[in-house]
């Protein structure tokens, strides 16, 4: 008999099941746009609900999404730090 832990996993998956879902490839195609929308401070889930749904239901795609988000947040953070440093340096020079 199916054990309770697995029954819960299956019931949760069924509760999130929609008639129309993106496949992993379709989600992957949209992932860069989804992450950039999110990093721009916009509501990516509202703009791309099928991508958001797939990311909630697919562990593999969610891992890749979170890794991409970390990568881009870091690169934007380092870019902001560089801009800050350049401004500080300019203000010292001008002052």
């Amino acid at each position: 008999m199916i054990n309770p832990k697995d029954s819960v996993k299956l019931a949760m998956a069924l509760s999130m099941t929609q008639d129309v879902e993106l496949s992993c490839d379709e989600c992957f195609e949209e992932l860069d746009r989804f992450v950039e929308t999110q990093l721009a401070g916009l509501d990516a889930a509202a703009a791309m609900p099928l991508v958001e749904h797939h990311l909630r239901t697919c562990d593999g795609c969610r891992d890749e999404y979170q890794a991409l988000l970390s990568a881009l947040r870091t690169s934007r953070g380092s870019l902001s730090a560089k801009l800050l440093w350049d401004r500080l340096r300019d203000s010292f020079r001008s002052g």
Binding site: F28, L31, D32, R33, V35, E36, G60, D63, E64, A67, L68, A71, L72
Partner: peptide
């Protein structure tokens, strides 16, 4: 539809995982 570097990094995450 995104920055080229974002697109390339998306591929890198699929490769890595």
């Amino acid at each position: 539809e995104s920055r080229f570097t974002t697109w390339a990094q998306r591929i890198s995450m699929r490769v890595a995982y």
